[in-house]
Structures are given as C-alpha cells and as structure tokens.
Design a protein around this nucleic acid. Structure first.
Lengths: 129, 129
DNA sequence: TCTTGACCTAGAGGCGACTCTAGTTCCTAG
DNA sequence: CTAGGAACTAGAGTCGCCTCTAGGTCAAGA
C-alpha cells in the first residue's frame, strides 16, 4: 500500500512542509521513492518510522541526532551498540526533563492551592462568614 | 541586602544578558532600581521571583504569558482569579507535557530493551553458547 | 478547454528566546 | 595615571525548527 505525502501528513499529524523538510534533513530510514510526476510515494513503514521520529522530537531529541540515528539504521546491521548509546543517552535526558517538569509542577500546584485558598477566604467573607 | 546583576546571574543561573532581556520583557514583579552609575540593584525578592519565572519558563510557559502574570502581580490585589486562571491553564499544559513525555519514555525504554536483548544474544553466541 | 487541487523545487521568512557586539562609563587596585 | 573588570545601552545576530512563497507540472472533472 502506497501513500501520498498528503495522506502521510494526515496520519502523522506532520504538515506536508514538515515531511519534505524531514526528508531533506535525512530523517527517513529508507529514502522515499517517486511515482509518476516525481511525486513522493510512502509506505506504511515510512509512517511507522515517522511516528517514532515524532516521539523522539517531542521528547526533545534534536534533528541532527535523529539524523545520526537514522543513518545508523540505514547502514544496517552491525552498529546496534551505537544506536543503543544514542537511545540510552536520550532516555537519560528525558528522565531529567521529567524530573524537572515534576519540580515545576509541584511549585505550580502549590501556588494554585494558595490562590484557591485565598479566593475561597474572600468569597466566604463576602457572604458574611 | 542588595545584589548586582552579576550576583543575581550567579544565584539564578541566568546570564547577565538574559537578566537584562527579562527586564526589558517586563518579567520583574517590582522594577529594578538603579544604584550609582545607573547600575541595577536587585533584592532577594527579585531573585525569588526570578526563580519562579525560571520554573515557569522551564515548564514551557512563553515569555509573553509570564509577562501577563507579572503584570497582574504588579497591579496588586484584586485580580487573584485571573492569576489563578493563568496558573491553572499552565498546570494543565504541564500535565499534558508530562503525559506525552511518559509516552515517549515508554517507547524509548521498549526500544532500549530490544537492543539490549539483541546485543546480549549476539554476545552469547560469540562465546559459543 | 479551463479550472482546481495536490504535488514539485529551491530558497526565503518567521518565531521564540536568547546571546553577543560595539562603544561607553565608572570604580578600584597597582 | 592607568589598566581591569563589571556594568551600561541599543540593536544586531544566532539557533533550532519549521513554514511559507514563487513559480511550475500534472491529472481529473465541469
């Protein structure tokens, strides 16, 4: 089953622009081949790969590092240790990010609580209690 | 106790440049007054405020929204509901961000596991098992 | 035949958040 | 008196990641 760039955009949530950009940046495990009129033809595998890349991006992996990873995958067997390294390093970064975010969340939740209390105290005064 | 911009940079982790930038962007609850020679003089309160702003930024609140919040605080009492709104909205965004990050983390952890298994299987073949 | 709409390329533009430059001023120590 | 170092301003530059533009091809439907 082959897909047009528009269909891939639909099912990945990326824009058509972004898809071409990602391709130019070397972020596709097997290069997209072309149909009549030079149009890109994608496969389900491409979509799956893109979905993983989206996960990596969402969690803050920079485009050049996704490219490095992609290149390793393209090269084929033999470099699994290097791929693992990239993933583990990123995993650690994500872990830190989450910890940081949790810290922020705690502060925000604390502040929200404070403001809610304050507003409630005002409201109950207003009705004379 | 008053602090120079350099000292504030040290204790917040922001660069001197970033501090001036934040000030220009209206992200200081009470405006910094100036000492001899037009130099900025900060107080501990400023540092505390900045630390909170750093938390907000780290968790992805855009500068304009921090400015809005800051303005409300500067205006003083009476707009607590609006402040609460901003905080709650942001809290929700952070929650979503964390969920997303967790999803990414799960995928990455799954992949790391796969690669580790594969590498171990290769390694044990290599020693003849 | 004409129009519409999806696609193509190369390259410019935009946005958010800093970061840095250039040219000064000012204080302190040698 | 001079050299350093920290501060000042306004504004330009950078970086990452897209996003959009201009100008074009192509196939299908009215």
């Amino acid at each position: 089953m082959s897909l047009s760039i528009g269909q891939v955009a639909e099912r990945t949530g990326l824009s058509v622009h972004a898809l071409r950009f990602y391709e130019k940046e070397g972020i596709l495990a097997n290069q997209v081949h072309r149909g009549p009129g030079g149009r890109r033809v994608y496969t389900q595998q491409d979509v799956d790969w893109l979905r993983m890349c989206i996960m990596l991006r969402m969690s803050g992996m920079p485009v050049p590092e996704i490219r490095r990873y992609t290149e390793l995958v393209r090269q084929g067997d033999g470099n699994e240790l290097q791929r693992l390294d990239i993933l583990k390093e990123h995993q650690e970064r994500v872990r830190q990010q989450m910890a940081q975010l949790q810290e922020c969340m705690d502060l925000i939740t604390y502040k929200v609580g404070k403001y809610e209390d304050y507003i409630n105290s005002i409201a109950s005064k207003a009705v004379g209690q």
